[in-house]
Design a protein around this nucleic acid. Sequence first.
DNA 1: ATTGACGGTTGAAACGTTTCAATTGTACAA
DNA 2: TTGTACAATTGAAACGTTTCAACCGTCAAT
Lengths: 343, 343
Amino acid sequence: MATIRDVARESGVSVGTVSNVLNNRNEPVRAETRQKVLSAARLLNYQPNAMARGLVRRKSGALGILFHTTAAAVALDPYTSALLQGILRAAAEARQALVLYPEPWRSVAASASLVGDRRVDGMLVIAPAADDATLAALTGLGFPLVFVSATVPTGTGAAAVDVDNEQGARLAAEHLLALGHRRMAHLRGDHHQASALQRESAFREALAGSGVSLREEDVLSCTYQGTEGYDATRALLARPEGEAPTAIFAANDRLAVAALQAARDAGVEVPGRLSIVGFDDAPAASLTTPALTTIRQPLPQIGETAVRLLSQAIQGDGPAPANHLLAPELVVRGSTAPPPLTA
Amino acid sequence: MATIRDVARESGVSVGTVSNVLNNRNEPVRAETRQKVLSAARLLNYQPNAMARGLVRRKSGALGILFHTTAAAVALDPYTSALLQGILRAAAEARQALVLYPEPWRSVAASASLVGDRRVDGMLVIAPAADDATLAALTGLGFPLVFVSATVPTGTGAAAVDVDNEQGARLAAEHLLALGHRRMAHLRGDHHQASALQRESAFREALAGSGVSLREEDVLSCTYQGTEGYDATRALLARPEGEAPTAIFAANDRLAVAALQAARDAGVEVPGRLSIVGFDDAPAASLTTPALTTIRQPLPQIGETAVRLLSQAIQGDGPAPANHLLAPELVVRGSTAPPPLTA
DNA sequence: ATTGACGGTTGAAACGTTTCAATTGTACAA
DNA sequence: TTGTACAATTGAAACGTTTCAACCGTCAAT
């Protein structure tokens, strides 16, 4: 590999000058000299060494991504893929490389060691558990951090980007109410994820706003992983006539798909006898029969926004850090209909 | 951030000694000294700077991933996700960070600039076009490279990992033949991808081996992107009675799903009147109705193997580079059946 | 003629590590 | 007592950049 010194020798100038022209800083330099340097660099196929540069500039030109669990587990998730799509797009635009840390971030200590090696200039933290202590400790490191799919308490110096979960839940509620449903159930996501809590409470409040109450026995604790949705739904459908809800709002599409499966296996027609609304608009949502009515998250935009925010934070000229909430959208497909008339 | 010099001062020894104990090399060092250094490091929360270390060691501790197109486009692809899963798992094991370059690698020049900055120790090249000149130029860089989803001509110093496409196509052919099909069609993938060519020719040969010929008009050129599969299938099904194939082997699941959709829209029953076999076993394959019979690629294992090979190449003790072919598997689901009896 | 300004260029000092030859101290053998 | 061996430690030279104070002409103004 050719070094900057090789280029300097080849073009007969000092390394300082070579550096100046190659980084075209605003230092004055004769056109002729510039040409000599440029052609020497091309001739030697010179590429600046990122580490040497990073060492003195104290910038690596790379952004890190930290996952809440092993990255391997998360790679398969369409949720992450969609997010990544936006992240990559924005990173390409900002000319930043992306560093994936295969280890999950768990303790502050562990993540500190990742952050501490200064391999990246800032970090995107994906879907962290809503554990304020850890979050705070992480932000306390004085390292540019943007949380994705989370909200940070105002006052901490960090930024967060997320879909407006409450608005999403409200959209689901309004849709179901408009169809005429009065007895509904909710399949709740991971209880340690803030989004799950937000979706539940906003759904409850939206119903209450229309004089419909969400009963305690009608909210089932599941996880975003989804499989629990099956048994929960079977249990719901096994209830005596009149005790079963006519619609289910699932905290994400995985749960919704599981519910759909359960309904099919129980011989309950969807949407004829049971309506189901999901959340996310995962690719699978449009492939099921019936296709899923769901709340779409603008995942790519969330990713883009996060990168943009992080870049600003790194350059130090960011606006006051805050929670950025992006609007969700109701996508009506085939899994919702008015409740059966057998009231 | 504390530097190694801070640790040296704090523990009252030289930086050389600090470096020795922290990297526990086989240099002899008094137990007492070791303790002093260790506790000083802990006290100061010292983290070695990855760039400084990389600069002198000439190793970054990171692996790069290069995609054949914009990474953003590829992120959504379940194919890539599954691959990534294996890559991440193996990278975690090898304690290597992963660097994603958001820009696609197109020309050698462009990728050389990525490779040249020495930010990574080696590169995984995903699904490159089967363009020997570019491949050769890339391998000629003297940089550890492993191609994924490609085969390299023997002799070039690079390694490649892929599913055994020919065996996969053979599996599909045998399955269809065993069911009794004699007139089949093939939806071919990208003509610039080696895998598409391999799947086609192996399918053709496997049929020929049983005395069945694949007619020219029955192989339709599509792309892995999939959408063309719809029109191609419609055209196939619109042929006069007796001129239409009774089964389709699609080069990947996207094409197979499109074919399924086309059959449904044309009122042709699957698998009653038309059998469809896909390739990949993408997540969507099990969600369609009927679920797709397909050839499963061991994508996570391919990713793992690639990382392992790359690590070996970096350490310089790798075995002779070669093409590693992993075995595919036939997954029989609901989209295949014997041909209709109306012969 | 002296000064000042400025365009153009240089050389060396960082950046934070690792590594290695050199050095010190100690113990043992001759 | 001298020499040798070896365990333990040191100090400085790399690694390949960027940056910045300093320097040298040259030209214009005084």
